[in-house]
Structure formats: C-alpha cells, structure tokens
Computed example of a mutant assay.
Amino acid sequence: MNGKTSEEGELGVKRIAALRLAVGMLGERDAAEWWTSAFLSPTSTSFLAPVFGGNTFQARYHGVLEAARRVHDERIGVGLVFHLFRLPESVEQRLFESVQSGSSDLAKTISSPESAKATLQSFVTQTVAAKSGPALMALPEAIETAGWVSEAASLYSAAFGAGVQCFPYFPSDR
C-alpha cells in the first residue's frame, strides 16, 4: 500500500477481509438472500470439515467470496471495475495471505449474524441513503489505501437495512 507502513497496510487488509466476511454472511441465503450460498452458516463446518480439515475456515471464506463475486460481477460487470469481492491482484494476494495467517481473529467476524452486523457497523462512518443496484464509489487510486472500506460499509449497511441490493464499485484506472 503506497506510502503506508507494513503495519498500516496489514490493518487495511484485515479490515477488507473482515468486511468481506461480514457482507458475505449478511448476503447469504439465511439472511438477505443476495446470493444462494450458505458457506458461513453454522452448519457449513459439518459438511466442509471432513474434506478440508484444519482449513475449514479458509474454505468457508473462499466459498462465500466466490458466491458474492459472481453476483457482484453479474450486476456490475467484469473488466474495467473493481469491487469488494474483486480487487486488483496485488491486494488479492495480500488478502489471501492475511486470511491464511489470521483465521482465528477473522472467525469472530462470522460467529453469528449479530457479530457480522456489528463488524459491518464498526466500519460505517457516515449515514448514507440506501441505493439499489451498482453504486459508484471513490476514485481507483483509493483501492490501495483501504480508506474506501468505510464508504463501502456505509453503502452495504444502508442497503441491508432497507432490504435492497447494493453493489459498490470502483472504476479501474487501467
């Protein structure tokens, strides 16, 4: 992350991963039904543990990531845009490493729907009107700073509260 210390960059990556998990859980079929997956439901571990063993958390994370990514891609498009579930490769790599090493901290984010809501709310810094559909966010260079997390959280929170689907995105600078 440009101009940031390693610690600041790691905190930003953890914030993005936590936001992904919170939105992922709140968007699943047992909650808002934005996507039909149930990777973060309480029963998913029973099905995933025999296959993934000690990597069950990572399997749950990547499962909901892919489910949410597909729905976001369908609504926003793929190519010259980024969103919470599809970020530049350099950010995705840091997220992968963070999830591999910090699963126990991140697991608290999805211990219940209430904890997911609390995590989402912890990132909200402004009250915004609920928007339905794709919602343009900050400029592309903001992706590298992770300052956009609060803007995305505010949009997602408003949408979940209003019962509409919102898909915040960035235009690509490429």
Rank of each mutant, 00 (worst) to 15 (best):
V13N: 07
T36P: 00
A38F: 08
M25S: 10
K108T: 12
P134N: 09
E144G: 11
K117T: 14
G63E: 15
F96K: 09
E10W: 04
I110Y: 11
I110Q: 06
A49D: 06
S37K: 05
T56M: 04
L48R: 05
S150V: 06
F57L: 03
R94Q: 14
D73C: 08
L120E: 05
P168S: 10
T43R: 04
K117C: 06
R20D: 01
S101N: 04
K14H: 01
T43W: 00
D105G: 10
K108S: 12
P50I: 15
P171A: 14
N55V: 03
E114R: 13
A118C: 09
G9Y: 03
L26P: 02
P88W: 14
V13Y: 01
G161A: 13
A49F: 05
E141N: 13
E97M: 05
L106V: 08
T5R: 07
I76T: 12
K131L: 05
S37G: 15
V91I: 15
T127F: 03
G53Y: 02
A135W: 05
T127V: 13
A67D: 14
T36Y: 03
R15C: 03
H83D: 08
H83A: 08
L84S: 12
W148I: 12
S41D: 12
S41A: 14
G77M: 14
C166T: 14
L139M: 06
G12R: 10
E74I: 11
L106D: 02
T125H: 10
T5C: 03
P171D: 12
S122N: 13
P140D: 11
G163L: 09
E92P: 00
A49V: 12
G79Y: 05
A116K: 07
A138D: 11
S157F: 02
N2W: 04
N55L: 11
R70Q: 11
P113C: 13
E7V: 15
L26F: 07
V91F: 02
A31I: 08
V128P: 00
V78I: 11
E89K: 09
G54Q: 09
K14P: 00
G79A: 02
G53F: 10
R15P: 00
Q93E: 13
A22Q: 05
L11F: 01
A146W: 04
A118G: 09
G133D: 08
W35Q: 14
R94K: 14
H62N: 09
M25C: 06
G24K: 02
S41V: 05
K108P: 00
Y156I: 12
Y169D: 10
N2C: 01
N55M: 07
D73F: 03
L48I: 14
V71N: 09
L65S: 13
W35L: 01
